[in-house]
Amino acid sequence: MFKVVRQIINEQISHWDLILRMAKFDVKGKYEIHYLGSLWEYINPSIQIAIYWFVFGLGLRQGAPIGDIPFFLWMLMGLIPWFFISPTLLQGSNSVHSKVALVSKMNFPTSVLPTVKIVSNSYKFFTMMAILLIVLIAYGIYPSIYIIQLVYYVICLFAFLFAFTIMSSTLSTLVRDYQMFLQSTMRMLLYLSPILWDTSRLPIPALENILKLNPFFYIIQGIRDSLIGGKWFFEDPIYLVYFWMLTFAILFFGSKAHLRFRKNFMDYL
């Protein structure tokens, strides 16, 4: 029944070694021409963190903490996953379009291209998460038992990115306008996720529930819950099932579209 999903996943597994090695070259090629090299991977986000903290933390909140967590840390727990999500999603969606001319001449499954982007960006993500943990401890926020569910939410994050980039790399190759649309949407989602401001303070609770439809809401809130502690992932079963059903549906329709159109990708360039 879900043959297409199985096929896409099998292609990832059987080419896993290739994915890792291509990711290595991807990282290498990106900063080869810059003097500061891969240092830019950290300089860029640091500048953004400083700006957001200045505007939202000092400017709008006058440095007031959220609960008993300083705003700066609260924001970091959302921004660091976002610095992984946003570029990976956009690059992953563009990956087939930008590489198809190169790989279609070979016996090479295009479905691994988005995964290569996810893997190549995740090195940076894991480093930044490690830095975040160190910063938290330096501020005296020690990890509790809740930290173990971080593994679960990171799995959620990767599963969703995988499903979404399979679908959207196909769409983006067929209809170029989609990539533009996605860029604007991602810019919008930064403000519609609990990253820079506390959504629970909205005057109408139903508004927050609408924001919760955004799957990144689930992931970012979950990661924050694991770091601060206080809430288990199974405490909200409806939201959990919603997230996974959505991920599966995207993977299902994405795999279907990918397998149907991939022979003709070159015709749409």
Partner: peptide, 14 residues
């Protein structure tokens, strides 16, 4: 595949 997403989405909003 699509229907549960809609139903659950509705539940989340409610």
């Amino acid at each position: 595949v699509a229907l549960p997403v809609l139903v659950l989405g509705l539940l989340v909003v409610l």
